[in-house]
């Protein structure tokens, strides 16, 4: 049966948003395949994975395959690559979908190499075209879009975070315990420590709003303004340019651009950012872009939907108050 496998990513035992995106993408593909094709979602963690089934069913999983082991408390690439590849071989899947997250980018190519099949990475769209699955994949920092045809079976695909919006396609899934052909306890690569970032802070890949600061902020302590504006929106994460991460004002993990994170929020607010091509590469697909810059010739204004020419130290405090007021009025 030409079923579709989705890898449902967890962290600390909780499903991540990208897990629901992968299941939604798999549901879309299964519906296109037709003939009652099912979505099988694999979910891994230390314990209690069956409790994740209901939520995966909400988004279209017909079967939830649980992998549980103390050695799966953290992402365990060797054990998971073996388990997912074995499941695909045994189940005869038409395709396996992953998120192109840090985990998925690591796992999906390993699975493809084990199976000896091609992978289409970081795709922003896909469809069935006869016997092939055709995907769109941005290349050259998003300045060119490649259409790629995958002819082998199974097709291994990783989907760009936020390219798919989790949708409801509710059913009550069957729950199966999956096999672990490689013992998670004997993995060669061991996680010795998990360093939590800002707990409670929204991740750049998941936040609907991103407020980013550039060199125009002038000093690390001035990022307080960026953080306050993010807090005023309530659903925002803080980003930065490479000029800022190079200076050590913000950690490298906050960097957006060609060599940093690729983001696509509903709203991107660029403060004191010139709009270098390498920065645009990471955020040009944002739905709405706002820019505040004192130089009216700054290239960021060319792609901004709404630009304000002005000093961030004057405009941002006013913006913080106005956003707070607008949200209170609701």
């Amino acid at each position: 049966m030409p079923n579709i496998l989705a890898f449902a990513e967890t962290r600390g035992g909780e499903l991540r948003k990208v897990a629901l995106e992968a299941v939604t993408a798999a549901r879309t593909l299964a519906n296109a395949v037709g003939g009652g094709a099912e979505v099988h979602a694999m979910v891994a963690g230390a314990s209690g994975m069956a409790q994740r089934a209901e939520r995966l069913g909400q988004h279209g999983a017909d079967v939830v395959v649980t992998l549980e082991h103390a050695g799966l408390a953290f992402y365990n690439p060797e054990a998971l690559a073996a388990a997912v590849a074995a499941r695909i071989t045994a189940g005869g899947y038409r395709a396996a979908l992953f998120s192109a997250s840090a985990q998925g980018r690591d796992l999906a190519p390993r699975v493809a190499a084990r199976l000896g099949v091609a992978i289409a990475s970081d795709v922003t769209g896909f469809e069935l075209a006869g016997d092939a699955i055709v995907v769109r994949h941005p290349v050259n920092t998003g300045k060119v879009v490649a259409t790629v045809s995958l002819t082998g079976t199974p097709a291994i695909i990783s989907v760009r975070p936020s390219a798919v919006t989790p949708a409801v396609a509710a059913r009550t899934p069957r729950v199966e315990a999956g096999a672990l052909p490689a013992d998670p306890a004997v993995s060669r690569v061991k996680v010795t420590e998990m360093v939590q970032g800002n707990t409670g802070a929204l991740d750049l890949g998941e936040a609907p709003v991103i407020v980013s600061g550039g060199r125009g902020l002038r000093a690390p302590e001035n990022f307080k303004l960026v953080e306050e504006l993010a807090a005023a929106f309530g659903n925002a994460a803080v980003g930065a340019t490479r000029a800022v991460t190079d200076e050590g004002w913000r950690p490298h993990s906050d960097q957006i651009g060609q060599t940093g994170r690729l983001v696509s929020p509903e709203l991107y607010v660029a403060l004191g950012i010139s709009g270098a091509i390498q920065h645009l590469a990471g955020m040009r697909t944002s739905r709405t872009i706002v820019a505040v810059n004192k130089d009216k010739e700054a290239p960021i204004f060319k792609i901004a939907d709404y630009g304000i020419v002005g000093d961030v130290f004057e405009v941002v405090p006013a913006l913080i108050q106005a956003v707070k007021a607008a949200r209170q009025a609701h």
């Binding site: 872009i289 009216k296 204004f301 901004a304 709404y306 304000i308 002005g310 405009v315």
Partner: peptide
């Protein structure tokens, strides 16, 4: 893109 809506804090209400 390329729409500049105003200058300084005065542009905030319009934004």
């Amino acid at each position: 893109g390329g729409r500049i809506i105003g200058e300084g804090a005065a542009a905030v209400p319009e934004l």
